[in-house]
Design a protein around this nucleic acid. Structure first.
Lengths: 222, 222
DNA sequence: AATAAATAAAGATTTTTTTCTCTAAACCTT
DNA sequence: AAGGTTTAGAGAAAAAAATCTTTATTTATT
């Protein structure tokens, strides 16, 4: 995350990452409003529902290019399409996943990605027991098949769920195969050429926040 | 995350959340150095290995109270214990998980939490097929058993992996049962009393960053 | 039609986080 | 022992992000 920022910092001035990360939050809630047939919504409303400062909501939404009307707010439908368009949610994004262990399996079975246009189209694992089987409808292949398939299917997103030791090697294989964005779930730091996007998902970070704040609370109540 | 900040903002001035989130990164790498019998390490070294500015590394580490020596850096062992102590990694933290679907199952099978002292001691699911079975050695119970068990075992951490609809209800049950920290993997926003810590893990956020940056790259190469 | 209330939008301010600069300490080399 | 080099540490500066303030617009109400 912070690691990738510098690649873009020289640019005209895009959306700040925190704002970008809040957009799916709005999107998900707006989809909910839509099922309840709400026509319009104000920042105040979104602010209360999602616990984000109302001015910040407005700033965030403005990056998508949408305009609201005083007194009424934004059209729910318009806002949804604006976010979809900005995040390219409707562009189907095909991804490979490497590492068909527990976490990989969970991600393959996790339905939540479809809402954002991501589809896992193949999985790779070195375990002979797993090769040529399917998990949650995703076929598992040996990593040696990855380069050819990536090129043939023009897959540009790779998800890494292998152990830390194998992470860099896996990333190298992906990059060599033309993959342009890597979502790394392993705790290892991955180094690639500058034109590849690396997003690190580090569950330990959240656990640290949880654990430390729990400690702070305990001290307070003494 | 940002939602919980205000609870602590009135305090003497603790560690900033970004710094807190980087600590496990250092910790993991230091453990690796330890297996290679390295005695000491400098911020410059950590900086290069983890792609974090060296002064920032120093600032981050200083929050744990550790002192380094000019020219040599820090003792690997000392640094490890300082972080362990600061994050209370060696305090065993027992947690409940609610929702034994794909994501819940993955988290139960995910070995990475033990490194940080977290142990999932029981799971809860309303599905009768699942109740009284075990997944990855974790026993699954009906949620009605949660309050009593939480009090008996003095469990203070709850992990939510239920669908968005059921998230708030699950959180209410947890809070009523004495749980003080909730790690929410559902996309729903959870509201509780102020003394409960909520950490939202939102995979869609990362996906948004990935997707948007991929778009930015594509435009650049035109 | 006039007034009031709600809200978007723009910009200023504040806060937070990161980066830069300088100093002093520790070690190494000669 | 002297000088050079590396590095921690403290504090200043810059950058980034969030919050606050003001203004103007729109709708509803009288």
């Amino acid at each position: 995350m912070e690691d990738n920022n510098d690649i873009f910092s020289s640019q005209p001035r895009g959306i700040p990452e925190p704002a970008l990360r809040r957009l799916p939050k709005y999107y998900h809630y707006l989809k909910h409003l839509q099922t309840q047939n709400r026509i319009s919504v104000s920042c105040t409303h979104l602010s209360k529902a999602l616990m984000v400062d109302p001015t910040l909501v407005r700033k965030d939404l403005s990056f998508t290019g949408i305009k609201g009307k005083p007194k009424t707010g934004y059209l729910v439908e318009g806002l949804i399409s604006a976010i979809e368009n900005f995040l390219k949610i409707n562009n189907n994004k095909e991804a490979f996943i490497t590492g068909a262990g527990h976490l990989g399996t969970a991600l393959m079975g996790y339905g939540g990605f479809e809402e954002y246009g991501l589809k896992i189209v193949a999985a790779f694992d070195t375990d002979k027991e797993k090769v040529n089987t399917s998990i949650h409808g995703v076929h598992i292949l040996h990593p040696e098949k990855l380069p050819e398939l990536a090129k043939r299917m023009n897959v540009r997103i790779g998800i890494i769920t292998v152990p830390a030791k194998a992470a860099q090697e896996t990333a190298n294989l992906m990059v060599k195969s033309g993959i342009k964005a890597i979502w790394n779930f392993s705790p290892a730091e991955i180094v690639t050429s500058e034109d590849v996007i690396i997003i690190n998902e580090n569950l330990a970070s959240s656990l640290a926040v949880l654990s430390h704040n729990l400690l702070v609370i305990s001290k307070e109540s003494n």
